[in-house]
Simulated scan of single mutants.
Amino acid sequence: MIQRTAFRSAFATTRAPYLMARRGLHATPARLGGYHYPEGPRSNIPFNPHTRFFYLRFITFCAVGFGFPFGIAIWQTSKNKA
């Protein structure tokens, strides 16, 4: 907001709005066919989500990863404080 005000005050000519409009990303070329990786989508992950029963393995992985710290905390707090 401050930059636009400074820009308007410094370049108060009729050409100033056109300079602001020309800064868009429309000038950058499209690369790799719309994907970030040359092999295509889902090529950067270490597993294949198209396999059978993937969702069960994924839910199990997330449940174990999320529950592991809580299990450790419960185990640590339930130990005898001798």
Results as ranks from 00 to 15, higher is better:
Met1Phe: 15
Ile2Arg: 05
Ala6Pro: 00
Ala10Pro: 00
Phe11Asp: 04
Phe11Val: 07
Thr13Cys: 13
Arg15Leu: 15
Ala16Gln: 14
Ala16Arg: 08
Ala16Cys: 03
Leu19Glu: 11
Leu19Lys: 03
Ala21Glu: 12
Arg22Val: 15
Arg22Cys: 12
Arg22Thr: 13
Gly24Asn: 14
His26Val: 05
His26Ala: 11
His26Arg: 10
His26Leu: 11
His26Cys: 04
Ala27Leu: 13
Ala30Trp: 09
Ala30Thr: 09
Gly34Cys: 08
Tyr35Val: 03
Tyr35Gln: 02
His36Val: 06
His36Pro: 01
Tyr37Cys: 02
Pro38Tyr: 10
Gly40Pro: 01
Arg42Glu: 13
Arg42Phe: 15
Asn44Asp: 15
Asn44Trp: 15
Ile45Cys: 06
Ile45His: 04
Ile45Thr: 14
Ile45Arg: 10
Pro46Cys: 09
Pro46Asp: 13
Pro46Met: 09
Asn48Ile: 07
Asn48Cys: 11
Pro49Val: 06
Pro49Asn: 08
His50Gly: 11
His50Ile: 01
Thr51Gly: 08
Phe53Ser: 07
Tyr55Leu: 13
Leu56Ile: 11
Leu56Cys: 10
Arg57Cys: 08
Arg57Ile: 04
Arg57Trp: 15
Phe58Gln: 08
Ile59Pro: 00
Phe61Lys: 07
Cys62Trp: 08
Ala63Pro: 00
Ala63Lys: 05
Ala63Tyr: 09
Val64Ala: 09
Gly65His: 02
Gly65Ile: 00
Phe66Thr: 13
Phe66Lys: 01
Gly67Ile: 05
Pro69Thr: 04
Pro69Leu: 04
Pro69Phe: 05
Gly71Asn: 01
Ile72Tyr: 08
Ile74Asp: 02
Thr77Ser: 09
Thr77Met: 06
Ser78Gln: 09
Ser78Met: 10
Lys79Ser: 02
Asn80Arg: 09
Asn80Val: 03
Lys81Cys: 01
Lys81Glu: 06
Lys81His: 10
Ala82Asp: 07
